[in-house]
Write a protein that binds this DNA or RNA. Structure first.
Lengths: 365, 365
DNA sequence: GTGAAAGCGCTAACAG
DNA sequence: CTGTTAGCGCTTTCAC
C-alpha cells in the first residue's frame, strides 16, 4: 500500500461507483442516517476505508446549514483567565460533538467586528463573545448576529444594549469582600490596581460612576465593589488610589510605584487581574517592601504560582472552568432550539485567604 | 431600519436581482476579482450593504478548494508554553489573512487522530501539529495528510518517521547549559524533574536511552542534555534523581518530596516545565527548605511570576512567540506552493540566570 | 464589461 | 431498502 499523492480525495460518488451502488446509499451508510441493508453497508464501509474516504464537512454543512462549530471571540487568549474558560468551553463543546473556532481581539473593537464577520461567514452555529464594549455602549457589529438569529452568549461581561444570554461572575460582591477583608484588618488606604482605562483620573466619585458606564462591565463592577466596601466602612474615596492605566504589567508596576510614593501611601493593594498582581508585586519588590509586613495584597484569579509564592497570596478565585462549560451549555441549548427568554447566569467568585494580608504596619500608617 | 429575523440571509443571486445585474457581475464585485465598470460596481456595493449581504465562506471554499484556515493540534492549550506559541502563530496567520482552528489532545493519541480527522474534514489549508508521539514511534493517522499532500509543520517535537517541516528548540543544549550551570556552582546531585513517563525508573543509563526513544522528542532531548552535563563533569548518573511521573503538578511535588527524603538528596533541581517548577517549589516549601540557601533551582519557560518570586528564579527561556510565528510562516510558505525539501528549524532557548542558584550548603552536602 | 451555465461534495425528497 | 434528482452559494469558464 504505497502512499500516493492523490490530490483529488475520494468522494461519495467514487465510493458509490467502486461499490456498485447509488450515491444515496453510500451517503446513508457513511452519514449514519436512514437505513441500509447490513450486506451493502459492510461492502460500502470496506470500500470507503480502502479508498481512504473522509467526509467533506464543508459540503455537508452547505446542505445541512449547520457546521457543528462554535465561534468564540475573546479579548485576550493569553490571559490565564480566558485560557481557563476556554478549556472548560472546549471540553463541553467537544463532548457535544462541536468544534471551537477561537478568535482574539486584544480589546480592539474593530478586530471584534472583523472576528464576528469571519464567524458569520464561516456559518458557525453559535457565538460566545466577551465583548470589548463598555456596559452602556452600543455594539453595531452584533446587529448581524441578531438579524440572522445566530445564538449568542456573552461571557464575563454584560452589555446593556445587547439582549442575549450571559455567563458572568459576581464581580461586585467578590470585590467588595476582598476589600472588606483588607479593611477588617485595619487598612484604610487601599490601592485598587486596575481601574477603568481613562486619560485622567476620576475627579470625584460621581465622575467615577460616569466612567464606569463606559468601562468594561467586569472592570466597573469590581470598582463598584471597592466603593461599596469603602462606603460600608465610612472611608472617603481617594481618586489617587485607583489606577487608570492601560492593562499591561509594566503600567501596573509604574502606577503602583506612583502610589507608593504618595505622602500618604496605601497600606494594602487589591490587584484585580493576574498581570495587575505581578506588576504590583514587582513594584513592591523594587521598593524593597515586604508583603505582608509592609504592605498587604490581594489578587484576582487563582494560580498555582500565587499559592506557592512567599508569602502565599490571597486571591479572589473565579470558577473559570465552570464559566466555560456553562457558556457552552447555554449556547448549545439555544442551538438546540431553546427559546426561553435571555437570561444571565451569575457564578460566584470567592476570596481565598492565604498569607499576604496582615495589619498595617505602624510605620507606614 | 428594523431588525427582522431574516432566517435566509441574502445571497449573491438576491443582490444580483435587486441590483438588476447578473450573478457573475456581483460575484466579481464582491469577490474583488475580475473587472466591473465603476458605475455598476457602486450600485452593487450599495445594494449589498443595504441587504446586509455577507459572503458565505463555506460556499466559496467549496468551489475554490481553499478555506484560508490553518489547523493547529496541540497537546495542551492550558500550558503557558503553548499559549505563547499560539499567540505568535495566530498573529502571523491573521496578518496573512488566515484563521486558526485549534484542537487540543491532552497528549492522547486517539484524540490526536480525531483532531486530524476533523481538520481534514474541514479542509484546512495546512496543519501545525505538536505530536503526542515518541521520537521513533509511527503515527498512522498522519498518513491521510501525507496522502492528500496537506502541508504539515511539526511543532516543538520531532518524529523520526514523519517527513515534514519542523520548528523546535535546541532542547538538548539548553538543558545541558542549565545543568552545567548548576554543576559549575558545585552541585553534584541534581534532580531532574520531568523525565519521560514510565512505569518504573530506568535501570541504568542504557535503559534510559531506550526509554528516550519512545518519549516525546523534547522530553528526551532535555534528559539527554542533562546526561551530557553530568558526563562532562564526570558525575555518575543516578536513576533516583530523575522522575518518571505523570506530568501533573501534584505528581511533581510528590516526586520531589521523595527525592528530598533520600539519604543523599539533591542539592539542586532542574524543573523542565512550568508545572514541574511550581510543583517543585511546593515541595521545597513543604519541607521548609529555602531557595537558594538550602537548594538551588532552575526552571523551564520564563514567566512574569518567575521573575517576581523571592528569590527570582533562573529559567531556560524559550522563544515561544517566535516559535509560533515561524511555524506559521513555514506552513504558509508550503501552502503558497514551496516545494523545497522538508527542513527542521531549530530556535535557541537560553538560560536566564537570576537568584535561585547558589553553592550547595555544607549541611545538605 | 457582462451574463448564462456548469459544478464543487454533500443531503434530502421522492420514486421505485 | 435503494436510486434519481434537485439544490446549498459560490466561482469560473466561456460566450456575447
Amino acid at each position: 500500500m504505497s502512499i500516493e499523492h492523490d490530490r483529488t480525495p475520494p468522494t461519495i460518488s467514487e465510493v458509490a461507483e467502486a461499490a456498485g451502488v447509488g450515491r444515496a446509499t453510500v451517503a446513508r451508510t457513511l452519514g449514519g442516517y436512514g437505513s441500509v441493508s447490513p450486506r451493502t453497508r459492510d461492502r460500502i464501509l470496506a470500500v470507503a476505508r480502502e479508498l481512504g474516504y473522509r467526509p467533506n464537512s464543508l459540503a455537508r454543512s452547505m446542505t445541512t446549514g449547520e457546521t457543528r462549530t462554535l465561534g468564540v471571540v475573546l479579548a485576550d487568549v493569553g490571559n490565564p483567565f480566558f485560557v481557563g474558560v476556554l478549556r472548560g468551553l472546549g471540553e463541553a463543546a467537544r463532548s457535544a460533538g462541536y468544534d471551537v473556532l477561537v478568535l482574539s481581539t486584544d480589546e480592539d473593537r474593530n478586530r471584534e467586528a472583523a472576528a464576528i464577520d469571519v464567524l458569520v461567514g464561516k456559518q458557525v452555529d453559535g457565538i460566545v463573545l466577551s465583548p470589548a464594549a463598555g456596559r452602556s455602549d452600543v455594539v453595531p457589529h452584533l446587529d448581524i448576529v441578531a438579524k440572522r438569529a445566530i445564538p449568542l452568549v456573552l461571557l464575563d461581561r454584560l452589555v446593556d444594549t445587547v439582549e442575549a444570554d450571559a455567563v458572568v461572575i459576581n464581580n461586585r460582591e467578590a470585590s467588595r469582600q476582598a476589600v472588606a477583608a483588607l479593611i477588617a484588618r485595619g487598612h484604610r488606604r487601599v490601592g485598587f490596581v486596575w481601574g477603568p482605562v481613562t486619560n485622567e483620573p476620576a475627579a470625584d466619585a460621581t465622575d467615577l460612576r460616569r466612567i464606569i458606564d463606559h468601562a468594561l462591565w467586569s472592570d466597573g463592577e469590581r470598582l463598584l465593589g471597592y466603593l461599596d466596601a469603602l462606603e460600608e466602612a465610612g472611608i472617603p474615596f481617594d481618586t489617587s488610589l485607583v489606577t487608570h492605566v492601560l492593562k499591561h504589567e509594566p503600567q501596573a508596576t509604574r502606577a503602583v510605584l506612583g502610589m507608593l510614593a504618595l505622602s500618604d501611601p496605601p497600606t494594602a493593594i487589591f490587584a484585580t487581574e493576574t498581570d495587575a498582581l505581578t506588576g504590583t508585586l514587582r513594584a513592591i519588590r523594587q521598593r524593597g517592601l515586604r508583603c505582608p509586613d509592609d504592605i498587604s495584597l490581594i489578587g484576582f484569579d487563582d494560580s498555582s504560582w500565587a499559592s506557592v509564592m512567599e508569602p502565599p497570596i490571597s486571591v479572589v478565585a473565579q470558577p473559570v472552568h465552570q464559566l466555560g462549560t456553562l457558556a457552552a451549555e447555554c449556547l448549545l441549548a439555544r442551538i438546540a432550539g431553546s427559546d426561553s427568554p435571555a437570561s444571565t447566569h451569575v457564578l460566584e467568585a470567592n476570596l481565598i485567604e492565604r498569607q499576604s494580608v496582615a495589619e498595617p504596619s505602624t510605620l507606614t500608617r
